[in-house]
Structure formats: C-alpha cells, structure tokens
C-alpha cells in the first residue's frame, strides 16, 4: 500500500524576474510504514515539496501539473477546509528549528490541547493525552512540562516536544523537515532513535528531509535525490548508496565528509552552480556541472528504470 504518491508534480512561482519553475516533473512514492529520505543541497526544492504536500505554498506559488495522492485523495484538488482537516491529523510535520517552531507565549500544554481541537474530547482527556505523549518522547516530569513554555526547555527537549505534538494524532504520514540539523551530534543520534521507535509504535510512514547523508543512510528505507527541483534519482537506500546511477548522486556521495579517507586540506565540492530556476536549461538540469556530459544531454533526459524501484533521470543510465 502506498500512503503518498507524487506523480509528475510541477510547481511554479511567479516572481518579478519571471516564472520560477521550482519543482519539475517530480514523481516518487512513500509506501506504508516506510521511511523515505529526501536529499539535496539547499535550494533544491525540498521546502517547496513540503509546502506543496501540506497545501501551504506561498500566494505566488501554484501546482501547474501533476498529482499528490494521499490515502486515495488528490491533495492538489482538495478544498482548503478538507486540507486543513488532514494537516496535523493525518499528515504531520516536524520542522528544523524547534525554538522557532513552537509558539513562545502559549504553554506547551495549551499548544498540545489546541492540536486536538477536532477530537471532541474533554479538556481533561486532552491534557491526559498530551501528558502521555510527552512521556512517550521521554520528557521528564511530563505533567509539569505541560505548564511550561517552550523557552524553558533545552533545544533537544524542544525538538522532542515538537515531535510529540506532531505524532499526537497518530498521523499516517510524518514529514520531518531536517529535524536534527539544529541539534548537536549526540542529540541528533538520540532524536533519530526516538523517531525510529515512534515510527514503529504508530506505524506511520515518514518523509525524512535532510542534507545529512549519514543520517539518511542510517534511517531511511528509500532515498529520493533532488537537484534543482527535479528528482534525479530514487530507489532503495542500498541501491542509491551502493550503485548510484546519476552523476549528481555520485558526486554528492563523493563530497560527503564522512566518506573522506585520509587527510585532506580541501573538502571536495561539485564545481559550478545550481542553474537559475527562472531560466531552466532545455536539456538535463545537471549538464552544466556534469563531467560525463554527452550531446544527448541537450534533450530532456528520460526517467530510466535501472532496477526494480531504482530510477535515474539520466541518458547514461539507459546505456548501462
């Protein structure tokens, strides 16, 4: 069963400098109870993807083509009211910066109670539910934590509170937007373990967005590699990490500091820059930075299935 299926999704923003094609022909699936990682550099369209799924694109952004099917409903065609019903209940989100993501002037208990406003439970039942959830994310003294305000918690605790809020309504899909980027390394491991444990318990699917390849490799079942608003490669974590088929994926893996063996004065980078998305090149979007460029790259590259479930958007992948 597929929880989330994105097909041919195109998102554009109208800006003063013209139409900005932020997502181009994005397709991938999040199967039930699986953790799918999305990797890519800053500005590759990860945030736009989240906003498109949540129906929270900025006013100047629009879905031009494609569908986002969640539990049988196409989210791109849903009315605002139905979409609002799904958010926080069936699709939930944990954001990057926990301090900024929590309301500073409302107590944690109040915010958790508000998230349950649709449940029809009494106030006491809601508070009991919040407390149980805080205990589940291992907040010490959960009962008094309800009366506290976000700034009274440490960064790691804030992120656990945010996770508790996101999973309180037992959603089918959790979107985790770089949930560990703002945390230090030891907290990162603890948070990842907590997410894994809760995912097992709630039996939800997770769309895990990160630029940290190590975390993706550790946590995710499937990986989606994004570059300049396109999915350049997707497959199981094993397929993508052990047999990358897109030159961009290969370069990205080479640049991962964790993979450097031996001492080096300079960390490797990919030369060149991400193209201006207002003027997309007609052919392959990575062609200008690619060291394996051929003439066929001037035409729109096909999505090539190199193995079952392993797809790369590159003409060279077909030749292999």
């Amino acid at each position: 069963m597929t929880v989330l299926a994105i097909k041919g999704l195109n998102v554009t923003f109208s800006t003063e400098g013209g139409q900005l094609h932020a997502l181009k022909n994005v397709s991938f699936e999040v199967p039930e109870r699986r953790i799918v990682g999305v990797v890519g550099e800053s500005g590759c369209g990860k945030s736009t993807l989240i906003n498109a799924i949540l129906g929270l694109l900025a006013d100047n952004g629009s879905v031009d083509a494609g569908s986002i099917t969640f539990e049988g409903e196409d989210l791109t065609r849903l009315g605002a009211a139905r979409m609002q019903e799904l958010r926080g209940q069936r699709i939930s989100t944990v954001f990057q910066d926990p301090m900024g993501a929590l309301n500073p002037v409302l107590s944690v208990g109040r915010q958790m109670r508000n998230i349950q406003y649709r449940s029809g439970r009494s106030r006491n039942e809601k508070d009991a539910r919040s407390e149980a959830m805080l205990r589940q994310v291992r907040i010490p003294d959960a009962q008094s934590a309800l009366a506290q305000y976000p700034h009274e918690f440490s960064g790691g605790m804030q992120q656990r509170v945010a996770i508790a809020m996101a999973l309180m309504m037992r959603p089918a899909l959790l979107i985790a937007d770089e949930p560990t980027t703002a945390l230090d390394a030891t907290l990162e491991v603890a948070t990842i373990e907590l997410l894994q444990e809760l995912q097992q318990d709630i039996a939800c699917s997770v769309l895990f967005i990160s630029h940290h390849l190590g975390v993706i490799a550790e946590l995710c079942d499937d990986v989606v590699v994004m570059y300049a608003g396109e999915v350049v490669e997707r497959g199981t974590t094993r397929q993508v990490f052990h047999a990358p088929c897109h030159p961009y994926t290969r370069r990205l893996l080479e640049c991962d500091p964790a993979r450097q063996s031996g001492r080096t004065r300079h960390l490797p980078t990919i030369p060149g820059e991400v193209p201006d998305l207002r003027h997309r090149p007609p052919g392959c979007v990575f062609a200008t930075r690619c060291d394996q460029r051929v003439d066929a790259c001037d035409k729109t590259p096909p999505d090539v299935a190199v193995a079952a479930g392993h797809v790369a958007r590159c003409v060279l992948a077909a030749a292999r």
């Binding site: 949540l54 929270l56 609002q84 019903e85 799904l86 958010r87 926080g88 209940q89 939930s92 989100t93 954001f95 910066d97 900024g100 993501a101 929590l102 309301n103 500073p104 508000n114 998230i115 406003y117 649709r118 945010a162 809020m165 996101a166």
Partner: peptide, 17 residues
C-alpha cells in the same frame, strides 16, 4: 511571517485561532 505560525498552520489549526 514567523515559523511558529507556519507550524500552527501545518497542524491544521483554524485560521481564526
């Protein structure tokens, strides 16, 4: 414009709240 308002929307809270 702040992030916590975006979070509140992501939790599907009513616009009036």
């Amino acid at each position: 414009e702040s992030q916590h308002i975006r979070t509140a929307r992501a939790f599907g809270l009513p616009e009036r709240m």
